[in-house]
Design a protein around this nucleic acid. Structure first.
Lengths: 144, 144
DNA sequence: GGTTGACCTCAAGTTGACTTGAATTCGTAG
DNA sequence: CTACGAATTCAAGTCAACTTGAGGTCAACC
């Protein structure tokens, strides 16, 4: 399978060379050879970059992403951890849905103040309920 | 309507005082009075903090969030912009759904290498298609 | 009316994710 | 075989979003 050198990976993926070098450095996406000085990557790297972009847009750190799809494109986490991650993402999807609905409401509702609109209030209650569960006990404790 | 001082807001929301001061400083969530030196906030601030948490978890910057729900809890953007934001979030939900499915697949699939599994490949193709549209032309141009 | 504890300010430090710049090294085309 | 251009290294810089620390202030309770 033929290798791509850094310039080609950069062009095809839209990721700047400096970033590719950085990812290589931190071990997120490794170059597998050199052509002279030039880093070369497997074509697989393009796929990995898609996954990285996906993960980043979801707000995951590069560390997180490395854990989900290991440095070799294979996951290095036990499947339980992966499923936990998947569930976290599910919660996040719920959050985003609420946020999206809130924005649409705010754009459309003609009430004088959104904060007084009952349907907006309902969205906000939803928003509150579904935050990071690790915080919830802390908050309940102090609000009582 | 009675005001809450910073300590109470911090406890009820789980957000550290230093962060509240920071948000006040940058104008994201403003304190409305002082009790001696002590910052005081409207109860509304708690709601705003929920929205901020929501937005952050979705990967938005504080700037973005300020734009969505203005510093007074009122949106200061024209409704068109808000709807554009909502659509962005919709795309993001699609991304996250793909990512979640990919993780679940990776956790469950018994193929020797996920990268060779046809159903994983299918997820990845999806992932590629739905990225930031502003990049697409650049990539298409250079991959030809 | 003095002590306490939670707050204050302001400057500086931290972390993650990169980018930038200067000086250098290759491979290829002429 | 030399010049060019694209890549290299390494150190330093940048930006967002906070946190930390030193030194000061104030309201409230005893």
């Amino acid at each position: 399978m033929k290798l791509l050198d850094i310039g080609e990976v950069s062009q095809r993926s839209g990721v700047p060379p400096s970033t590719l070098r950085y990812y290589d450095e931190i071990g997120l996406i490794r170059s597998v050879a050199r052509h002279g000085l030039r880093r070369q990557f497997e074509p697989l790297a393009l796929t990995q970059l898609s996954l990285v972009a996906l993960g980043k847009s979801a707000g995951f750190s590069l560390q997180d992403i490395a854990g989900m799809f290991g440095a070799d494109g294979q996951p290095d986490l036990p499947r339980g951890d992966l499923l936990v991650r998947a569930d976290e993402i599910d919660r996040q999807i719920g959050n985003l849905t609420t946020l999206r609905d809130a924005l649409r409401h705010v754009a459309e509702c003609r009430a004088p103040s959104h904060m007084e609109c009952p349907s907006f209030q309902k969205l906000l209650r939803l928003a509150k309920r579904r935050r990071d569960p690790s915080q919830q006990s802390k908050e309940r404790a102090s609000s009582e």
